[in-house]
């Protein structure tokens, strides 16, 4: 894989302050994500997985280091451009679904579209956008739940709605922060299957953070974070040492 990576993180450093104490979360993290790849990032809690995702999608700024999207540096862009990147280029799935409780499933899915459009252009394209969003919900198996509020949906259903929301603006990269962390194993598997399917059929680039090793098996490549650095990154998931890393991790 010699082509330019779609998304790359170079020497990322990030420190959080927790009251008086400084917590160094990332200490020189390097990572490359290639177009069409389904990458999973594993690591114990506190190893900096979520922080890495937040930095990659420009929700937060690194203290040091840089993020590149197709070779263009994006972490130091003006706020308006970063907002636009989060809206159009990245899709984000959270562990706790994070749907807006006041809106029904369809409205939640439409939210990125509403943020993108002005009131007037929204009004003009409303019918078409609604139809597309409904189709997306149908695709993730929620066609019968369009008008339900989040509190009327199960965990799995909420996560499906969240996936549909992440996909509605046709992003280049889907970032998933422990998407199965709050679901039972059966439902979790279904969610990963949906992601796998999206990756295979549409070539969607996915970076998924998880600490469920079983789920990481379904991905093309697994990366392990230890103390804010990539401990082992293997470009070919089917190579022996990659399997060894996974096996080692699952034993640990």
């Amino acid at each position: 894989m010699n082509q330019q990576p779609l998304l790359s993180a170079v020497n990322l450093h990030k420190t959080y302050r927790r009251s008086a104490e400084k917590v160094q979360v990332l200490r020189g993290l390097d990572l490359e994500v290639h177009e069409g790849e389904f990458l999973s990032v594993i690591g114990s809690s506190g190893s900096g997985k979520s922080t890495m995702l937040h930095l990659m999608c420009t929700l937060d700024k690194p203290d040091d280091g840089a993020i590149y999207l197709e070779g263009r540096r994006i972490d130091n862009l003006p706020a308006a451009e970063r907002d636009q990147l989060r809206n159009r280029t990245f899709g984000f799935i959270f562990q706790f679904y994070h749907l807006l409780p006041e809106l029904n499933a369809l409205e939640n899915v439409l939210m990125p579209q509403m943020i993108m459009h002005s009131a007037w252009s929204w009004w003009k394209a409303k019918g078409k956008l609604r139809k597309e969003a409904a189709q997306l919900l149908e695709r993730v198996g929620l066609g019968h739940r369009l008008k339900h509020r989040p509190k009327e949906l199960s965990g799995g259903e909420m996560q499906r709605a969240a996936i549909a929301r992440a996909l509605v603006n046709r992003p280049r990269v889907l970032l998933a922060d422990e998407p199965t962390g709050n679901l039972d194993s059966q439902t979790g598997k279904q969610i990963v299957e949906i992601l796998r399917d999206l990756n295979r059929r549409e070539g969607l680039t996915i970076v998924m953070v998880t600490h469920n090793l079983e789920i990481s098996h379904a991905t093309d490549r697994v990366v392990k974070l230890v103390e804010g650095r990539v401990e082992a990154a293997v470009s070919d998931p089917f190579a022996d040492n990659s399997q060894a890393v996974i096996r080692a991790a699952s034993v640990a």
Partner: peptide, 16 residues
């Protein structure tokens, strides 16, 4: 607070 975080993650600006 959390909804505000979600909106920002989805691309809403501070002004918005």
């Amino acid at each position: 607070t959390r909804d505000i975080g979600i909106l920002k993650a989805l691309g809403a600006s501070n002004g918005g």
